[in-house]
Amino acid sequence: MSNDMTLVLGATGKTGRRVAARLRLNGTPVRAASRTSPVRFDWSDPGGWDAALDGVTAAYVVPPAVPGPVHEFVARAAASGVRRLVLLSGRGADTWGESTFGLDMRSAEDAVRGSELEWTVLRASNFDQNFDEDLFHAPLVAGALALPAGTVPEPFIDVEDVADAAAAVLGQPGRHAGRVYELTGPRGLTFAEAVELISRASGLPIAYKQVSPAEYAAALVEEGWDETGAHHVAEMFVLMERGKLAGTTDDVAAVLGRTPRTFEDYAVRAAAAGAWLP
């Protein structure tokens, strides 16, 4: 048990709420912050940051969707007495080259890794839970998922493993200092294979269709996305199709001492919870 206060940003999001719960269970004092939490934190409103940081010694950072703000946040954190930062980032961020995808995450990494604080970066592959908690959920419920992803596999990772890793790193000062962990699932799956597993586990007829990045971006705009956001998501698939992010790593085991959860395990749990029922 630690008496040090840990700030968890994005505390109502996919990873943040899970990280906060794990820390509390372990007896760690937690300050859960988001735009809708009792402790409010908004990346676009730096005026509220100091109150969230007051008395904090470690922070779990989920970066905003725009480059820049994490630099000021890190400076504020250091000035307030924060000693450790754990940043969530994207798989293989330093291999993205000239891609316009992930400029926000790369900026956040530069801020954290360039600081004098103890830091750890968790770079995660696409979450399993994107299929039931996020962008892919509604199309699956409607019976068909259309994406610009072909035969290049993706080593999807269960967000529960990401949360386990973040809580472990936050609970072990010094052990993971200056480390970048590339977190993946145990094997790669194409999106078509992932949808097939979801269809089988749920017992529902769900199809997968490959479309072009331009078609996908246009579809997102029709659904109400702004063009910049739609292009950003489509560009992720362009990056993935290069194949540089298709391999798996042993970094979950390095942090947790066990293998990562399988996609099949995720599909069974989500189907049993009725995730894709109409």
Score class of each variant (00 low, 15 high):
Gly10Cys: 04
Thr12Glu: 13
Arg17Trp: 05
Arg24Thr: 12
Asn26Val: 00
Asn26Lys: 14
Val30Asn: 06
Val30Phe: 04
Arg40Val: 07
Trp43His: 00
Trp43Leu: 00
Asp45His: 07
Ala51Asp: 15
Pro64Trp: 10
His71Thr: 13
Glu72Ala: 11
Val74Thr: 02
Arg76Ile: 06
Leu85His: 04
Val86Thr: 05
Ser89Ile: 00
Arg91Asn: 05
Gly102Met: 08
Gly102Ala: 14
Met105Gln: 12
Met105Thr: 13
Arg106Lys: 14
Ala111Trp: 11
Leu117Ala: 04
Asp132Thr: 08
Asp134Phe: 06
Leu140Asp: 02
Gly143Ala: 05
Gly143Asn: 05
Val159Gln: 14
Val162Gly: 11
Ala163Gln: 03
Ala166Pro: 01
Ala167Gly: 08
Tyr181Leu: 15
Glu182Arg: 14
Thr184Gly: 12
Arg187His: 12
Glu196Thr: 09
Gly203Glu: 06
Leu204Pro: 00
Pro205Leu: 11
Ile206Val: 09
Gln210His: 01
Ala217Asn: 07
Ala218Glu: 04
Leu220Ala: 10
Trp225His: 10
Asp226Lys: 06
Ala230Trp: 10
Val233Leu: 15
Val233Asp: 14
Ala234Val: 04
Ala234Trp: 05
Glu235Ala: 15
Phe237Lys: 08
Arg242Cys: 13
Gly243Asp: 03
Leu245Ile: 09
Ala246Lys: 02
Trp276Gly: 02
